[in-house]
């Protein structure tokens, strides 16, 4: 199954490359619009718009209360680390990681787990196990003195009522809608106005692990 779909993928890429080549030949130096990959700048901001288009309105405002921040950080070693996989993974799954995406690409309700599924912000990385580890035992090999920094605090708006800045790096987490929207989202960070579609219109990145800088006029 997996092999077949990979082949198809190659074929599609091949055809696309051929088309691009044709386009280049026919339009010569005038092929101008093709020169920029719209997915590949501004922290892949295009993902937000695509997620906004692809996510039904009703899903955006839905809330299950299934996940909270405590359980969210429990799965992580430090804020921003890849979470461990919190559920059992059937052995037949293990050779075919892209199947994770059958649930985590779009979210929705999982009969199997009786929960709404969180959505990954980076479905283009389909080698899930590269970063996300399974939990086969909670026992440690040796105890550790590892300490994590505190996660960013919530509600740190600069003003009462102003939109809070984005406290985390956008790398791998470019698609705001995937984590902050829908019934699979963590309740404390879930928003119900993502249909506005242009998140960074109001929310500026202000990563809390770097010090704030003030503007000082050079003399």
């Amino acid at each position: 199954m997996m092999k077949r779909s990979k082949k198809r993928g190659r074929l599609v890429t091949g055809v696309a490359a051929l088309c691009l080549l044709c386009a280049l030949i026919f339009t010569g130096s005038t092929a101008f619009s093709a020169s920029v990959d719209l997915r590949d700048f501004d922290n892949q901001g295009k993902k937000i718009y695509e997620a906004n288009d692809a996510t039904p309105q009703i899903y955006m405002s839905a809330d299950s209360g299934d996940r909270n921040l405590a359980s969210f950080y429990e799965l992580r070693q430090y804020p921003g680390s890849p979470p461990r996989i919190p559920h059992e993974v059937d052995l037949t799954f293990s050779g075919d990681e892209t199947d994770c995406l059958s649930c985590h690409a779009r979210g929705g309700y999982s009969q199997e787990f009786g929960k709404f599924v969180p959505v990954t912000p980076h479905p283009e990385n389909s080698l899930c196990y590269q970063c996300h580890a399974q939990v086969l035992t909670e026992e440690k090999f040796v105890e550790t003195e590892w300490k994590s920094i505190m996660p960013p605090r919530l509600g740190r708006s600069f003003l009462g009522g102003s939109p809070p800045p984005i406290p985390h790096s956008l790398q791998m987490r470019e698609n705001c809608i995937s984590c902050h929207t829908g019934p699979g989202a963590v309740v404390e960070i879930r928003v119900d106005h993502s249909a506005r579609g242009n998140c960074r219109q109001c929310h500026a990145p202000a990563v809390q692990t770097t010090p704030l800088q003030e503007f000082v006029r050079k003399p």
């Binding site: 101008f32 619009s33 020169s35 920029v36 719209l38 700048f41 501004d42 295009k46 718009y49 242009n198």
Partner: peptide, 16 residues
């Protein structure tokens, strides 16, 4: 020039 607006648009067309 390609911008956030180009990313959001259904189609981005560049001109000289």
């Amino acid at each position: 020039r390609s911008t956030r607006t180009s990313q959001a648009a259904d189609k981005s067309i560049l001109f000289r």
